[in-house]
Simulated assay, not measured.
Amino acid sequence: MTMTGAGTTRQPLTVVTGGSRGIGAAVCARLAADGHDLVVGYRSDRAAAESVAERVRAAGRRALAVAVDTADAASVDALFDEAATLGPVTGLVNNAGTSGPVGRLADADPAGISRALDVNLLGYLLCARRAVRDLSASGGGALVNISSAAATLGSPGEYVHYAAAKAGVDTLTVGLAKEVADEGIRVNCVAPGVIWTGFHADPERPAKQGPGIPLGRAGQPEEIAGAVSWLLSPDASYTTGAVLRVAGGR
């Protein structure tokens, strides 16, 4: 159970955007195992989202799969309104993301850059905005933003625009944590390195990057999920404004 507010205990109900695959799906599975009810936000693959929701239910927790465009404020509001049918939301994992164009910035398509910024930064802002409103009204809670080690590495030759958006996510985490601390809301961030998911344009990228990582390998989604679960838990009750790097030493 999650301890929030002035010693009150509530059933954890967490919204996970981009929950149908990769890191998001692993986060949903871990949170279900740790006692959370889940709202699985997804963009277009309903079958994948429903599969994740079924795994959550199989773990004995409640789950909804809800379509959302996180870069659209009305769609975000609809997501949280649907989540509220299960009870008061206690947490948000801001995870929906896209790499956008891959390659040199000078060669990148402007529309692709714009969409990547909308999803990777504007979407986080809009979801955090609504989550803070709901959590403040119901006694507090916790947000975890999924950033990237790219925020400090820059990702030259791959996706500088993505790295720039993730640097914005880090700053969002620090600023918002200070802004809402007195409302009983904690805001933290997990910054993964190279992880074995379907995110990569080149499916072999994690294997190729492995030798250059101090721990000698790319990470697994479950290793990110563990960090997210801790930040949402009472064990992290004195942690806010943190950017936790889970990147194998990079």
Rank of each mutant, 00 (worst) to 15 (best):
L126D: 11
V66F: 10
K178I: 04
Y124C: 13
N188V: 06
A116N: 05
S44Y: 04
L105K: 05
V27G: 10
A33D: 12
S99I: 15
D45E: 13
K208M: 08
N188D: 12
G219L: 00
V89F: 05
A181I: 08
G212A: 14
D69R: 12
G212W: 04
A96C: 09
A67P: 15
Y159P: 02
A164Y: 02
A74D: 15
V187S: 02
L38G: 06
R129N: 10
D134W: 12
R186W: 01
L232D: 09
R217D: 06
L121A: 09
P88W: 04
G100Q: 00
G112Y: 04
A165E: 00
G249I: 03
A150P: 02
L86R: 05
Q209N: 15
L86N: 10
L215K: 09
S237K: 03
E204S: 14
D45Y: 05
T173F: 03
G168H: 02
P88I: 01
T9L: 13
P214K: 01
E223R: 06
E183S: 15
A67H: 11
D72K: 02
S44D: 11
T14Q: 07
L122N: 11
V194L: 01
A218E: 01
G198Q: 13
Y162D: 04
A242W: 03
V102I: 14
A137H: 04
P221K: 03
A49W: 04
L143P: 07
R21L: 12
R62T: 06
A218W: 00
A32D: 10
V174G: 04
G168W: 01
R186I: 02
E54H: 08
T240V: 04
V40T: 11
V190F: 00
L117D: 02
V39N: 03
A242F: 03
Y162W: 02
D134I: 11
A29Q: 14
K166A: 01
A150C: 09
T8G: 12
H36I: 03
A242C: 08
V52L: 14
A201H: 11
R250G: 14
A25C: 00
D107Q: 11
C127E: 07
G24M: 07
L232K: 08
G193N: 07
G112V: 00
I195Y: 03
R245I: 07
K178D: 14
A74W: 09
G216H: 09
P211C: 06
D81I: 06
T8E: 15
F199W: 14
N95T: 07
G60P: 03
R250L: 15
G226D: 09
G212F: 08
P12I: 07
R55V: 04
